[in-house]
Write a protein that binds this DNA or RNA. Structure first.
Lengths: 193, 193
DNA sequence: GGAATGCATTGACAAAAGTCAATGCTTTTT
DNA sequence: AAAAAGCATTGACTTTTGTCAATGCATTCC
């Protein structure tokens, strides 16, 4: 249990057995079936979630009521409405399972305690946030500076596992496009290349 | 000197006089004239930069060679090519001064030392990264889920000082639009409202 | 095994955004 | 004070993207 979580953790900062055991006490395992919600808009995000197995997506609904995907999470990735989690305010994001999932949850209380008690946890979170921010900056730069063809190619490079695993209409949603437009973009890429 | 930097720091975590003095030794002041570069694409980002006075922008160049603005920084804000800074790899961002600026710089060596020596510095950076990530998530959600009119209104709420202070063609660039389109979007908002 | 559902693609058309050129107004430069 | 540069706006036109409808294919569900 928690193999993926601690593997990812140790890739960034090596933990002793004792530290691992201590941290484990603050973690909660959870299984989620495909299409089940982890979080719904308006609820407070009670947990940061690390995916041990499966795949999740986070999205907002636009005025027409259709999903715009803000992010995905595969094995080893972290997902949650961070803003809602940190401030304990109602969430703007919806998060649900794309596949049957095994998750590790960290509650706000556990998170605060871990930061207080385990210096390496704070360091890990600092690095996690930094990495997440860098990745989102990169995605933002891609979105505002490239043609759709180039955006799609860049996402393929940046998130090959996601593009492979997730239906294309969700990639379209992630890019802020309709499925038809993404289909045509892909057509242009394969015909011209 | 460094008033704004320490004011922002103390808003998040209170420092003792001794801690302030210690941290000060790792900071470098720098003045930059309007239009001068802090960083050019291809160079390694040597410093994280906090704006004491003035305004900066970070941008990428698209295939047509025109600027797409990734972010602004006003007084008290932080700017830099974080990815380049952390990995000490060539930058993809250009950063320059919109106005004459007074800056506080933190080199990579200073940053690493501060993290090692001053626990509150690591905490501050963790919070800074978390806040930056939350803000960028919000901006991303806005960009993929809203009409241009709503995007502009949302940016007005999110960054009123920026919209007020910066020429509109830069706001257009920040939104991934041409200046003409933003002008028309603004026209539609004021006529319909 | 057949029906239903979800998904990607394509076509025809409508709506939105980009491009190019021109204008008028400031601000900056000299 | 005059000239130049920067900026926002507008109009005419082009290109891109969205919308709606239809099709074909694969997967899932009874």
């Amino acid at each position: 249990m928690y193999e993926v979580f601690f593997r990812k953790f140790n890739e960034k900062i090596a933990l002793t057995r004792e530290e691992e055991e201590l941290i484990k006490q603050y973690l909660t395992p959870k299984k989620l079936r495909r299409k089940q919600y982890l979080l719904q808009e308006g609820d407070v995000c009670k947990y940061i979630c690390i995916v041990e197995k499966g795949a999740m997506k986070a999205y907002v609904l636009n005025e027409s009521g259709d999903e715009r995907i803000v992010g995905f999470a595969l094995e080893g990735w972290t997902i949650g409405d961070l803003s809602s989690f940190i401030k304990q305010e109602p969430a703007t994001l919806n998060i649900d399972a794309l596949e049957d999932c095994e998750l590790v949850l960290i509650s706000k209380a556990a998170h605060d305690e871990l930061i207080r008690l385990v210096p390496k946890y704070e360091t890990y979170i600092r690095i996690l946030m930094t990495d997440a921010y860098m990745a989102l900056q990169k995605r933002t730069a891609i979105m505002i500076s490239m043609s759709l063809e180039e955006q799609y190619k860049a996402l393929l490079e940046m998130y090959p596992a996601v593009v492979q695993r997730v239906p294309q209409h969700m990639i379209a949603s992630f890019m802020g496009l309709t499925p038809e437009t993404l289909s045509r973009v892909r057509g242009r890429i394969t015909s011209r290349k």
